[in-house]
């Protein structure tokens, strides 16, 4: 996916929107049925937090990017992911899913991911986060958001997600462009760098927090009625677009994430899901005393258009 980054940055700047652009009190909230409500609450909760931690990923990438245009782009994407989380929180507030002044608290898997992002993400090479994030975006954009809009009739929700999806499509465009750029170079050098990062304790711990989070979310989403094929199709999109060019395919991170995506959606792979599901269960028993206090960036969520 060859894009002109300068023009893309101009487009990103010209496409800014604010929570105040949406009338959160407009009619339509009543279209949420009583049956939908509890599952929708869990779904929105996960979605909002994934956007929020994704934002922190972009913050790390903004630090790592050497190209000033890409650096500024990621700074915007960081803010935009936060905006999505804020908008999703505003929807939750609109649907009566939050008490007065209530801020949704992250579950244990999210806490572990937050902790890893807070302490380690700034030290991880750009190509690692640059490959994981497009996969998450593809899954969010192609499966979760589409599914949400099929289930929910509230016009305000559609209005918000129209804007969110527009942003996400730009994130994906840049994401795949960078994925290909990073596949450029001598194969053995790419592979050595890849192995060096992959085998570092930092990344092993990162994977140990990321992998169970995905399975927990998949379970939540499937429980809500999302057909697994949709998730399969969306994740296949990552492999299809990312692997379109030789450079993209040569990126070892692309290969790893694609392979991992295939394992996540293949429920029959007991060799993968057995241990990972066990990790999900085990994480419930993770000693809370070992957790650091929640970093302040994770408390920045707000559903109020004006502050």
């Amino acid at each position: 996916m060859d894009i002109d980054l300068d023009r893309m940055l101009e487009k990103v700047k010209a496409s800014q929107w604010a929570l105040a652009d949406i009338d959160w009190d407009a009619p339509g909230a009543e279209t949420i049925t009583d049956e939908q409500w509890p599952q929708l609450k869990d779904f929105m909760f996960d979605l909002m937090w994934i956007e929020h931690v994704g934002a922190r990923g972009f913050a790390a990438m903004a630090r790592k990017a050497e190209d000033p245009v890409l650096k500024e782009m990621y700074t915007y994407f960081h803010a935009e992911e936060q905006r999505h989380a804020n908008a999703e929180m505003a929807l939750m507030r609109r649907w009566g899913m939050l008490e007065e002044d209530e801020i949704p608290l992250p579950n244990i898997n999210l806490r572990l991911v937050i902790e890893w992002l807070d302490t380690q993400s700034d030290k991880v090479p750009l190509e690692t986060l640059g490959s994981v994030i497009p996969m998450l975006e593809v899954a969010l954009d192609g499966a979760l958001c589409t599914f949400l809009l099929e289930q929910v009739d509230d016009p305000v929700c559609h209005q918000a997600f129209e804007r969110i999806n527009d942003d996400e499509s730009r994130h994906l465009g840049v994401g795949f462009h960078v994925l290909e750029l990073q596949g450029h170079g001598k194969a053995h050098r790419l592979l050595l760098n890849f192995l060096g990062t992959l085998l570092s304790p930092r990344l092993i711990v990162g994977m140990a927090t990321y992998v169970p989070l995905l399975n927990r979310m998949r379970d939540n989403i499937v429980a809500m009625g999302l057909p697994e094929e949709k998730l399969y199709k969306a994740m296949g999109k990552f492999e299809r677009i990312g692997g379109r060019t030789a450079d993209g395919r040569r990126n070892p991170w692309f290969q790893l994430i694609s392979w991992h995506g295939r394992q996540v959606i293949n429920r029959r792979n007991r060799l993968y899901h057995g241990p990972v599901d066990a990790m999900v269960k085990l994480s419930d028993y993770y000693p809370r005393a070992l957790l650091r206090s929640i970093p302040t960036w994770a408390k920045e969520l707000t559903d109020r258009p004006a502050a």
Partner: peptide, 13 residues
């Protein structure tokens, strides 16, 4: 904006 500064995280300060 007329009442403040809108930042990219969608909030008007």
């Amino acid at each position: 904006a007329p009442k403040g500064i809108r930042t990219a995280e969608g909030i008007e300060h």
